[in-house]
Structures are given as structure tokens and as C-alpha cells.
Amino acid sequence: MSLLKHGRLVGEDAFQPVADDAALPASGAVLVTYARWQVEREQLTGRNAPLGILLPNNLDVLDFGAEAERFDLIVLQFPKFSDGRAYSQARLLRERFGYRGELRATGHVLQDQLWHMQRSGFDAFEIPRADAVEAFAKASRTFSHVYQPTGDGRVSVLKQRLAAHNNKNGRSQEAAE
């Protein structure tokens, strides 16, 4: 298993996953489930260490989004690569709730979905293969343009064309003046 962040391999995950029935470690960054967060809010925020949360992919993130900024890491799940719910969760967290921390994809994360995940706002990936860096780099280069705006900041084809059109008109207007 390789953990990639911003396209680079992360040697060791800073966040220690803690099972729901295990005691919290005294210090250090932890990753807890949404269920645990709901019952142990105070203990978890009082720890004074980076906090990560694992969200179920059937959670309506509208019910969670307001709390997103409390976390340094949000992990979204792809139980099967064909289950695309977490793409919507990711975009809502980034674009609606302005979450800026690490957004990590876990589960059935395949090379051919990395492009979609990146565009939806993921910046970290657990990829079950050794050549994850190469796979990621290749996936990122798939398309030179994007047809639709998302929170990744890339300019959509529609806006590109509009800008080209306006530039041309602007220029010809200048020339006429």
C-alpha cells in the first residue's frame, strides 16, 4: 500500500488509525471514525493534536460539513471503484464548506479513477500498488482540458473559449481605435 500526497510518496502516515473500541493514545495525530466523533467530540477536540476522521460514504455531508474545518484530515471511502458517492462528498466538502485540510481517498482506488478524484478535490490517495507515483503522474496527464468547472481551479473549456473570444474582440477593437 502506498500513501500519496500531492503526487509524492509519504513514507509514514502521520495519523494513527484508532479502532472504535480502542483507547485513544496519549499524544499524536489520530484518525477516528465518524461514529466515534459523534460520541467523543469533547475528548477528541481537547487532545491538542491533529485530528482525522473517516466518513462513511452514505453520510449526507450536509449534516457534517459545518464541522469539517475542525479536522486536519478527512478520509472518504470507495468500497468499490464503481461506487462513486465519495466524489460528491469530496466536492461538497471542498466547494460548499471550504474544507482546506487533507482529503484522502481510500478503498478500491485504481489508476483510472485518480483523474476523477483529483478533479473532485482529493489531494491524498491510498493506492494498493508499488508504482503509485508513476500511475498518479500518468493519470494526472490524461486530458489537457476540462469541460466542467470544479473546485480544482482549472478553467473550463467554455470559459477558455469565452476568454479567447473576448481577447480577440478586445484586440480588434484596439486596432480599430
Binding site: 473532485s120 469541460y147 466542467q148
Partner: peptide
């Protein structure tokens, strides 16, 4: 154009 390779709605 909008729906082509839509990252959120491909699965």
C-alpha cells in the same frame, strides 16, 4: 460538453 468526462458523475 458539461457531461463529458464529468469527474463527479462517472460512477
Amino acid at each position: 460538453q458539461w457531461s463529458t468526462f464529468h469527474p463527479e458523475f462517472s460512477f
